[in-house]
């Protein structure tokens, strides 16, 4: 809990840095109509895909900040030497990270969905998928960052490690939204996302903790 509070406090004092992924998210989505033409039917049809790919990239971009500064200033060593189980501390840090990077996406997503002409019913589903999906992105991403935080050129490898693992989230989240947009029932996909979320929450902190130990040694 204290670590969660600390990270939120740090994020508050570094507001500008944490606003970047959000800005990036909006920018990427703006590029699509410019590239594909602004025909409303086309945009409405591909909106779920666009929003989710952009969310994936924005999540990727923000991942590095989970452990980077802690690694650089030695706080990470202190975290690993703490008397508390590292996996729990990792979970707290990932929570904090999601609150400052994932949650804002949730707030701007309705606006973007409206701009892309997504029907109202689909918007609610979109928000639900973002709510369930982005924490998974943070959890899986944390493993990748933990593996690469000690490297000088970790960025490119990070995307190679993490993006393939994002595939299931992308598939189910985008298709849930699409289902809702075309009037079908998206609940099957939503349940799958929920299952992924539970799985990621229970397994990822352990892998992340192990990877962090590897990275500081």
């Amino acid at each position: 809990m204290f670590l969660l509070r600390r990270d939120l406090l740090l994020a508050l004092r570094n507001r500008a840095e944490y606003a970047m992924p959000l800005l990036f998210f909006v920018l990427v989505i703006t590029m699509f109509p410019l590239a594909l033409g602004a025909s409303p039917e086309l945009l409405a049809r591909i909106a779920p895909g666009i929003i989710w790919v952009a969310a994936l990239l924005a999540a990727m971009l923000s991942l590095d900040s989970i452990f980077r500064s802690d690694f650089d200033d030695g706080s990470l060593e202190q975290i690993l030497l703490s008397a508390h189980p590292v996996a729990v501390l990792v979970l707290a840090k990932v929570c904090a990270h999601w609150l400052v990077t994932g949650l804002p996406l949730l707030l701007v997503a309705p606006l973007l969905a409206e701009m892309l002409g997504m029907p109202g019913a689909a918007q609610a589903t979109l928000l639900l998928t973002i709510l369930l999906g982005t924490p998974i992105l943070s959890l899986i991403g944390a493993i990748g960052v933990a593996l690469t935080v000690g490297l000088r050129k970790g960025g490119i490898i990070l995307s190679l490690l993490v993006l393939p693992l994002y595939v299931p989230v992308l598939i189910f989240a985008a298709s849930a939204t699409e289902n809702a947009a075309t009037g079908f029932d998206p609940s099957a996909q939503i349940y799958m996302l929920l299952a992924f979320l539970f799985l990621a929450t229970s397994l990822s902190p352990w892998a992340t903790a192990a990877a962090l130990r590897m990275s500081v040694s």
Binding site: L3, R6, L10, G74, S75, E77, L81
Partner: peptide
């Protein structure tokens, strides 16, 4: 353990830094 790196968070005040250290030990 105090290593080469101070393990001090620049964005936090001295008291906040110490409070955090206490919470972890």
């Amino acid at each position: 353990y105090v290593g080469h790196h101070d393990g001090v968070k620049h964005e936090l005040s001295c008291l906040e830094n110490l409070r955090l250290a206490r919470a972890m030990g």
